[in-house]
Design a protein around this nucleic acid. Structure first.
Length: 914
RNA sequence: GGGCGCAUAGCUCAGUUGGUUAGAGCGUCUCUCUUACACAGAGAAGGUCAGGGGUUCGAGUCCCUUUGCGCCCACCA
């Protein structure tokens, strides 16, 4: 019938790739698609987000979907507002994670280890891996509809960012904020690298507390009982500590104790750190393998012994145990001690065991020479930035978490014994032994001029480069046009789980290197959990793949689910049912759109030439009201109110609530009620049809604009159809200034109320209630849906409105418009009248058709009781201090309600008496 | 040990300056393939907003407290 025959269900599969290609080819993702002014409008402050760069390790997970949905929403919203909006995409080399994957892959496919392959060859393989997985992950991010500017894409190991890393390192080095030295660090024996405190995860595990005797030198009987959870570390003990005031052991302080099985003499010392009540009240001190012991050792000048090597095997310090694995040693040593009569007992004990976040194996505290960042000075500035409100964290409660971490921050171990990453830019001279640290690779030693230089073999912690992300991606340290215009960025949106790892470090680095906060707002979203509420993660094996979900329900459905189902900072569970429900919403949008478009297309045939366009081509305003139906006024008032609400909620970062409101408006108000009203208005033809089509078009247009940041694909597709349909119709005027694509269409502007809205909304609400009431009655009466009813409406206060509206809306509830009477009074006649009370309106049906059943009597009684309860409550309320102390409008509202209840109750009572 | 969050309908959750009779989706029960949509329409059932106390004319919302669950930080062997 028309060229706008759209399929009955929304076909997201064919639509999504086509729409994304259209956007990308249109250059819409760039802040401006004016080739002469690529995004730079000095008059406007841009809105900028740096993407949390996904790792090039593997595939998409729901965390990615979450941040893409969230950030794309923000970007699209600002873009539509006409603000230059830049979303910088990129990926992260993810040192440990990627290296592990590549190693695993090498072992699987070529059966070689990285050591066998050598550094250079290994890095070649790693780069090949990167190329493959980079393309995979960015492809998937495109599939999510991400409107980021791919022309500005970055990778943490690319040339520009490497330069930034080098610059940052050298600056800190020159300021004395980077140092190298032996410290107690977390050593991952599996990965054979140091890891930072943040990369250690603690897990409660059942273990044992081992009690044994520390024999005192020169005595066969004197001993101090000591308890430990890690007996193997006995081999590295350099003291036994007791509390200075402990009467039991005071006498031993100053004497020597003998290390079991080794016979090495170590001092008995007194230190207040020891808790007398715990264990035996005596503590073995292993400065080489325990952070607390290390500190005690420092206080007492104890030697530090490393009894474990890089592979967590016992060193020569362990004498006869040298070469044993740490856990094998634990067993053997304990058995030997048992044989030697040194064991007291073992008891079950719950341990808090440190594991490597990536490798999973137990981390061993060890003394190792590593590079560190002296973090205190950076942390102080970062703390101040948030305290002073230069950076806002949403939700606010995370500010406290941030403060707490920043205030207790410890120096950051930044060197990793890996190959995949930014090499530490320090060279050691073979001749003079000194270090050279420069921006450009040095050819000679800065101290003695020797050319015998060796670069430090280690690489930097991945987060060292991530910390520079917001500015390194924009060209820093160069003062590029991008850097000058787009930095500092606006919004840092990410999961709360990387607040410390990443957000905190970006703030510190931004302030240190650029002198500015790298962003003004931090928005932290919650984590996605599976249907059982368990946090999704690869290691737990429950990380579901978003791809099949998108295959089945479409990207829009998944995005809508994540955006509307979550609140800032709170975790959400993702279930198939939710996504399915939102797929249904996408389909609802599609079908409402189909109806509107077919209505517009049908205008051709109605022949509207005589009506002229003048009354309809201008903006709807108060002057239009006299030509609008009640439904028109109502939907327009509701829409405008929605636009105001969405704007307010978006400004307050309440995206979920905004989405929910649009959903409700679109489905309940527009599709369920207005579209139904519009069907009849269209059928009237002529100006009324034109008027109605215009309203349908306007409401759909604005709804699609509001929805676009959340569900970009279906809205873009439909809006294109709407635009083309309008341009080919008598309503062409309406769409003549619209751009070619919704993505760059203007955001609906909130307008203030004009004063007429409340009355129209209330009137329509009454009409809705009347028809709902009649439908309810029909269900109770089990009426044939086709049966048209005759009815008499009696109302005092709404007489005129009802006289106008009831016949026209009769079909809402299957009334016969020919047999509808609206009047202000009739005589009760139980023989011929069957009454229904809706608010303050009585509706009578011919009693010949049915009588009041006991069931209805019960319902009426229930309503009456409910009214009575409300009346009592309100009378009591209005008789209390409320009437005096509450604001006048609030009181008046309650008075009006009381009056309405009284009227309703009177009518219900009359019903029962019939 | 310190901090934070959650507890609202059978299930999953909204409810952000305290102000109608606390909402939605799913599920359940009845009808209907009505010319946009059965991925739908219409109707219905279902809640002492975890317990206790307080502030207030008024509390799901603010304060205190108890209980249960979860998370983060710290890491007493």
């Amino acid at each position: 019938m028309t060229e706008y025959q759209l399929p009955k269900t929304y076909d997201f599969k064919s639509t999504e790739p086509r729409i994304y290609a259209m956007w990308e080819q249109g250059g819409y993702f760039q802040p401006s698609n004016d080739p002469n002014q690529p995004g730079f409008d000095p008059a406007k402050k841009p809105f900028v987000i740096s993407i949390p760069p996904p790792n090039v390790t593997g595939e998409l997970h729901h965390g990615h979907v979450m941040f893409v949905a969230m950030e794309d929403l923000m970007i699209r919203y600002h873009r539509m507002k006409g603000i230059p909006a830049l979303w910088v995409p990129g990926t992260d080399h993810a040192g440990i994670a990627t290296q592990l994957q590549v190693e695993k892959d090498l072992l699987r496919t070529e059966e070689v280890t990285r050591e066998e392959l050598g550094r250079e060859k290994f890095l070649e393989r790693a780069w090949a891996w990167k190329v493959k997985y980079h393309s995979l992950i960015t492809q998937q991010i495109r599939r999510l509809g991400a409107s980021c500017d791919w022309s500005r894409e970055r990778f943490t190991l690319d040339e520009g960012l490497s330069k930034a890393v080098r610059e940052a390192f050298v600056r800190l080095y020159e300021k004395g904020l980077i140092y190298r030295g032996p410290r107690l660090i977390n050593w991952s024996p599996g990965l054979k690298t140091a890891v930072s405190d943040l990369e250690v995860e603690y897990a409660e595990e059942p273990g044992k507390l081992y009690y044994f005797k520390y024999m005192l030198a020169g005595s066969k009987t004197d001993f101090i009982p000591v308890a430990t959870t890690r007996p193997e570390t006995i081999l590295g003990d350099t003291a036994v500590a007791v509390h200075p005031d402990d009467k039991r052991y005071k006498k031993f302080v100053g004497r020597k104790a003998l290390v079991p099985m080794l016979g090495r003499e170590i001092p008995v010392i007194a230190d207040a750190y020891v808790t007398r009540e715990f264990g035996t009240g005596a503590l073995k001190i292993t400065p080489g393998h325990d952070p607390n012991d290390y500190e005690i050792g420092q206080r007492h000048g104890l030697p530090v012994l490393s009894m474990l090597d890089r592979e967590a095997k016992v060193t020569e310090i362990g004498g006869p145990y040298a070469g044993l694995d740490r856990f094998v040693c634990r067993e053997k040593l304990w058995a030997d001690m048992q044989a030697a009569g040194l064991v007291i007992k073992e008891e079950p004990y719950t341990l808090n065991v440190p594991h490597s976040e990536r490798g999973g194996e137990i981390v061993e505290p060890m003394i190792s020479t590593q590079w560190f960042v002296k973090i205190q000075p950076l942390a102080e500035a970062a703390l101040k930035a948030v305290r002073d409100g230069h950076i806002t964290i949403i939700p606010e409660r995370f500010e406290k978490v941030y403060y707490n971490w920043m205030e207790n921050i410890k120096d950051w171990c930044i060197s990793r014994q890996l190959w995949w990453g930014h090499r530490i830019p320090v060279w050691y001279c073979d001749d003079c032994g000194k270090q050279t640290c420069t921006r450009a690779d040095p050819t000679q030693c800065a101290h003695c001029g020797s050319q015998q230089l060796r670069q430090d073999p280690d690489v930097l912690d991945t987060w060292f480069s991530s910390g520079l992300w917001p500015f390194s991606t924009l060209g820093w340290p160069e003062e590029t046009p991008d850097y000058k215009y787009f930095y500092p960025t606006t919004m840092m949106e990410t999961g709360y789980d990387i607040l410390f790892f990443w957000v905190a470090r970006m703030i510190m680095d931004g302030l240190e290197f650029t002198g500015q906060e790298p962003f003004s707002t931090v928005y932290l979203h919650g984590l996605i959990r599976d249907e059982l509420g368990v946090k999704m993660s690869k290691s737990k094996g429950n990380a579901s793949d978003p791809a099949p979900l998108m295959d089945e329900y479409g990207t829009d459905a998944l995005r809508f689910t994540l955006l509307v189902g979550s609140t800032p900072g709170n975790d959400m569970t993702l279930s198939l049912k939710k996504v399915e429900g939102n797929r249904n919403f996408a389909n609802k949008i599609w079908n409402a759109g189909r109806f509107v478009i077919s209505a517009i297309s049908s205008l051709q045939k109605i022949g509207t030439q005589e009506s002229g366009n003048q009354a309809f081509s201008q903006n709807p305003d108060t002057q239009s009201l006299n030509t609008w139906s009640l439904a028109d006024s109502w939907i327009w008032a509701r829409l405008q109110s929605l636009v105001r609400e969405v704007e307010r909620l978006f400004q307050a970062y309440q995206y979920g609530e905004a989405g929910r409101q649009i959903y409700e408006f679109f489905w309940n108000d527009f599709a369920d009620w207005y579209v139904e009203a519009a069907k009849r208005q269209m059928a009237l033809g002529g100006e009324r049809a034109l008027q109605t089509a215009q309203m349908l078009a306007r409401v759909l247009d604005i709804s699609l604009r509001l929805l676009h940041p959340i569900t970009p694909f279906v809205t873009e597709e439909l809006w294109g159809h709407l635009r083309r349909a309008l341009l080919a119709s008598p309503l062409a005027e309406l769409a003549k200034d619209w751009p070619k694509a919704l993505i760059i269409a203007s955001w609906p502007e909130p307008r203030p109320e004009e004063g007429w809205e409340a009355e129209k909304v209330a009137d329509f609400k009454l009409i809705q209630n009347i028809h709902s009431g009649i439908r309810n009655l029909r269900t109770e009466k089990k009426l044939n849906p086709r049966q048209r009813l005759s009815a008499t409406f009696v109302s005092g206060r709404n007489l005129e409105m009802l006289q106008q509206q009831v016949p026209g809306t009769a079909y809402f509830s299957g009334l016969d418009p020919e047999k509808v009477v609206v009047t202000n009074a009739i005589e009760y006649n139980p023989e011929i009248h069957y009454p229904l009370v809706i608010d303050t309106v009585e509706i009578y049906f011919p009693a010949s058709e049915w009588g009041i059943s006991p069931k209805e009597r019960t319902r009426i009684q229930k309503e009456l009781t409910e009214s009575q309860i409300q009346m009592d409550r309100l009378e009591k309320l209005l008789g209390s201090d409320f009437a005096i102390k509450a604001p006048a409008p609030v009181v008046q509202k309650e008075r009006d309600r009381l009056a309405a209840f009284q009227e309703t109750a009177a009518k219900l009572k009359a019903q029962l008496e019939l």
